[in-house]
Amino acid sequence: MSALEAILRRTSWSKVTADAPTREQLLPLIEAAGRVADHSSLHPWRLIELRGDDRLALGAAIAETNGDSEPSAKPLRAELLIAVVVSYRASEKVPHWEQEASAAGVAHMLSLLLDEAGWGVIWRTGGYTRSEPVARVHGLGADERLLGWLYVGGKPEGRDPGRRKTVDADAVLSRMPGAAARG
Rank of each mutant, 00 (worst) to 15 (best):
S40A: 15
A32P: 03
V85G: 04
A83P: 05
T65D: 11
P44Y: 07
G59Y: 09
L76C: 10
T22N: 11
R55W: 14
T17C: 12
A57E: 11
S41V: 03
K74M: 14
G59D: 12
R55G: 09
S87R: 14
E24S: 15
L56M: 08
E70Y: 01
V85F: 07
P75G: 14
A20S: 14
A61K: 01
N66Y: 01
A57S: 12
L29V: 07
A78F: 00
L50W: 10
A61W: 01
W13K: 05
S41N: 14
S41M: 09
H43N: 05
G59P: 06
E49H: 11
I62F: 06
E64L: 09
L81C: 10
E49R: 14
G52Y: 10
A78Y: 00
S87M: 03
L56W: 06
P44K: 08
S14E: 09
Q25N: 06
R77C: 05
P95I: 15
E70M: 03
E92P: 00
I30Q: 01
T17L: 10
L47V: 07
G67Q: 08
H39D: 09
G67I: 06
P75A: 15
V85D: 03
R77P: 02
I62M: 13
G67P: 03
T17D: 12
L58E: 01
L50T: 08
R23D: 15
S91Q: 04
P75C: 14
A73T: 14
W45Q: 03
E64F: 02
E70I: 03
R35I: 07
E24C: 11
A60H: 11
P28T: 13
I82G: 01
S87H: 10
L76N: 08
E79H: 11
R46L: 08
L76Y: 10
V86D: 04
T17E: 09
G34P: 04
L50D: 10
W45E: 04
A63H: 04
Q25G: 07
L29F: 09
P44L: 06
V94E: 06
V94S: 04
S40R: 15
K93Q: 12
L42T: 04
V16M: 08
A61C: 07
E92H: 03
L80D: 03
I30W: 01
D68H: 07
Y88S: 13
L56I: 12
R51M: 10
W13L: 05
K15P: 00
L50V: 11
H43I: 06
E70S: 04
P71K: 02
V94P: 00
R23M: 13
W13T: 03
R46M: 12
S72F: 00
K74S: 12
T17F: 11
L26Y: 09
A32L: 14
L76I: 09
A78D: 00
S72P: 02
E24I: 08
G52R: 13
N66P: 00
K93E: 11
T11Q: 05
L80P: 02
P28Y: 11
E24W: 12
E92D: 10
L76E: 15
W13Y: 14
D38C: 05
L29P: 06
L47H: 06
A32W: 12
S91A: 07
K93C: 04
H43L: 06
